[in-house]
Write a protein that binds this DNA or RNA. Structure first.
Length: 662
DNA sequence: AGCACGCCGACT
DNA sequence: GTCGGCGTGCTC
């Protein structure tokens, strides 16, 4: 008797076994609907085997797709992703597969669920046909478990599974692996398009807007399908199926498309590999860059990555000859100026330098973007600009206002607020910089004629965000955070002004410098020929500012890599953040100490003491390790990452965190 | 993750 | 005396 092991979208580390009804032909990677608990749920077959004692198992209910969605290579890659990120295979797969009829519309098992609204009984097949979802040919889809069993008894046609494609079995392994190539500098997107030409390719982009744009550009050289959520479910499903069947060979998508079937010899491209959107919260808890590189290596595909300012990780790969850097000659760069704000800028966010540049830009009919940041959670000296840092970890100390303490997010050390600046003995240590509201007020006062708009997409949602976006699109002066750069294409700006970029450097995050560098560079690339970039800073000699203004990528990475290496940060070490929660403070303390002790028993790991967050509801344990960090965490955490019983609390692991300033 | 089962507070 | 809170444990 054949038994299928099925993984579901749940934080369960083990698959569930089901009896495969006679006559079904299945393969690993096939999605099925099977009874789990009270309901029928969609899962992926991760293994098939013959077993004699399968009589007690429940049977599979039906197939979820007309053909299997993944081949064995795709499944193996998903396994690798799950292992690397310490998450379940089921949730990883769910995040990386196209929608299916059953996942979007959970069906009833034997009775209507008491919670769901009045069920109108339509046959699944009809519903599926209406929506253009795949249906099985030559078979009637049973509506319920009992009906299905009755159907089998009556000898209704048996579901016909997908046949194995010959390419799955030909066993040919990867040929020579091309090193990944990193395209940097002016014209990188055009270069990528040229490299792809009319050949087979999968282009992974950070967001839906980029997907639309890239589908259009790639479409000029050959048919392209879209796998992202910017098109409706039916189109995504059809696109995936077409790739699987070989009817399509060029696709664009966001990270949900990373496992899309591809023909041999395809190129996998990752656009803007440095973008944080390539690692949003939730499964698959791994950066798209890592997945692209791993897949290309496994399948012998060419990997191409683009970036204005590559991630330090990727630059390091190129530096150590594990990737090829293809950098264009420097393009146009704006006139740059630094306004030193040490000791000034107490009640006026705009220096004379920035005001003058704004006036000139507005007079010439061009647009101004003023970059601000949300409130910083660190302290700096108003006199000398020095930032209070952890003596050991060197990242900015996080300022906890209520407790009047400073804490390190890495090692957990807590220090009382100093009276004076340790560097210059100055008495003004200030946690606040210039928020968008105050800057807007100042701009309106000084430029009453100008159309001014604020844009901070991170802080606004829904209809309000849309209104804000429209206003910003019209405005002559836009005051915005990092996300506001998206409003402007290359050369769309006359002036970019950084009101208080030091605030970004104060963030208690070892990536703070990398992020500011990327932001300055991104702004500079959007400034028209003859335009200007003005930076107000208390630390004008900072290597981030200096390298960006001189348009010197290499200088920044040299300095940054040195700093990362000396202090044992990525890419030289891997990091993980283990978050422990519990209701009772005593449980929290005990569980956090237990976890830290268990991990600390591994001499290869550096485990920092658990540090409380500001509400004392959770504790974070930062762990440093080498390439094998995920395996060592899995071995050291109770029950392989599965949360222990809730009475004691929960444990969550984030490997290779990107956004961890909070 | 769902979902049910199971013991303690304010109410028709 | 019940309705219902969410703590606890299971799902092939």
């Amino acid at each position: 008797m054949t038994v299928a092991d099925v993984s579901f979208d749940a934080p369960l580390s083990h698959p569930f076994s089901y009896r495969v009804p006679d006559g079904w032909t299945l393969a690993p990677g096939q999605r099925v609907v099977a009874p789990l608990g009270r309901a029928n749920r969609t899962g992926v077959i991760v293994a098939l085997h013959e077993r004699d004692d399968a009589a007690g198992l429940k049977p599979l209910f039906r197939l979820a797709d007309s053909a299997r969605v993944l081949d064995v290579d795709g499944l193996a890659l998903a396994r690798w992703i799950a292992e690397q990120s310490l998450s379940s295979l089921g949730s990883t797969l769910a995040a990386l597969l196209p929608p299916s009829a059953a996942t979007n519309h959970p069906e009833q098992a034997t009775h209507a669920s008491s919670r769901s609204p009045a069920p109108i009984h339509v046959s699944e097949r009809e519903a599926a046909l209406k929506r253009g979802w795949p249906v099985l040919e030559g078979s009637r889809l049973p509506d319920t478990v009992s009906e299905r069993e009755a159907g089998l008894k009556r000898g209704w046609p048996v579901l016909e599974g997908s046949r194995l494609r010959s390419s799955d079995q030909d066993g040919s392994r990867l040929q020579s692996v091309p090193k990944p190539e990193l395209l940097v500098g002016a014209g990188r997107e055009t270069r990528l398009l040229e490299r792809i030409g009319d050949g087979p390719a999968l282009v992974i982009v950070p967001d839906v807007e980029a997907a639309a744009r890239w589908a259009q550009r790639l479409g000029r050289r050959g048919a392209v399908v879209r796998l992202d959520s910017g098109v409706d479910d039916a189109e995504r499903v059809a696109a995936w199926a077409a790739l699987r069947a070989g009817a399509a060979s060029r696709a664009v998508g966001t990270r949900s498309a990373l496992l899309a079937p591809l023909p041999r010899g395809a190129t996998i491209a990752l656009v803007d590999e440095h973008e944080a959107a390539h690692k949003p919260p939730g499964a698959p808890r791994l950066h798209s860059r890592e997945i692209v590189l791993e897949r290309a290596a496994r399948e012998g595909q060419r990997a191409l990555l683009t970036a204005g300012t590559p991630s330090v990780e990727m630059w390091w790969r190129a530096d150590s000859a594990r990737a090829v850097l293809e950098m264009a000659a420097p393009g146009a760069w704006p006139t740059t100026q630094v306004a030193d704000t040490r000791g000034i800028l107490r009640r006026e966010p705009l220096t004379p330098t920035l005001s003058r540049a704004m006036r000139e830009t507005l007079n010439s009919g061009r647009r101004v973007l003023l970059l601000v940041s949300r409130l910083a959670s660190a302290l700096a000296c108003d006199e000398c600009g020095d930032i209070l840092r952890c003596p050991e970890c060197v990242i900015a100390l996080a300022y906890v206002r209520a407790a009047r303490t400073l804490g390190c997010r890495v090692c957990g050390r807590v220090v009382p607020l100093p009276e004076t600046c340790p560097a210059c003995r100055g008495r003004r240590l200030s946690p606040f910089g210039w928020g968008a509201e105050r800057v807007e007020h100042a701009v309106r006062r000084r430029f009453p004629e100008a159309r001014v708009a604020r844009y901070d997409p991170e802080a606004t949602r829904g209809a309000r965000a849309e209104a804000q976006r429209r206003a910003a699109a019209e405005a002559q002066v836009v005051i915005g955070t990092r996300g506001a750069l998206r409003l402007f294409g290359p050369g769309a700006l006359g002036l970019a002004g950084f009101v208080a970029p030091d605030q970004l450097l104060r963030l208690p995050d070892f990536r703070a410098g990398e992020r500011l560098f990327s932001l300055i560079w991104g702004a500079a690339e959007r400034i028209a020929r003859g335009g200007a970039l003005v930076l107000q800073s208390q630390s004008p000699e900072h290597y981030v500012v200096d390298a960006a203004l001189r348009q010197d990528l290499g200088a920044f990475y040299r300095h940054e890599l040195k700093f990362r290496g000396e202090l044992g940060y990525p890419p030289f070490r891997r990091l993980a953040v283990v978050t422990v929660t519990a209701k009772a403070p005593a449980d929290l303390r005990r569980l956090a100490d237990e976890v830290a002790a268990a991990l600390g028993a591994d001499r290869e790991l550096v485990v920092y003491p658990p540090s409380p967050d500001r509400r004392n509801r959770l504790r974070r344990i930062v762990v440093k390790g080498r390439d094998d960090l995920p395996a060592r965490l899995a071995a050291g955490l109770p029950d392989s990452g599965r949360p222990p019983s809730r009475s004691r609390g929960t444990i969550a692991v984030e490997v290779d965190p990107v956004e961890w300033a909070f």
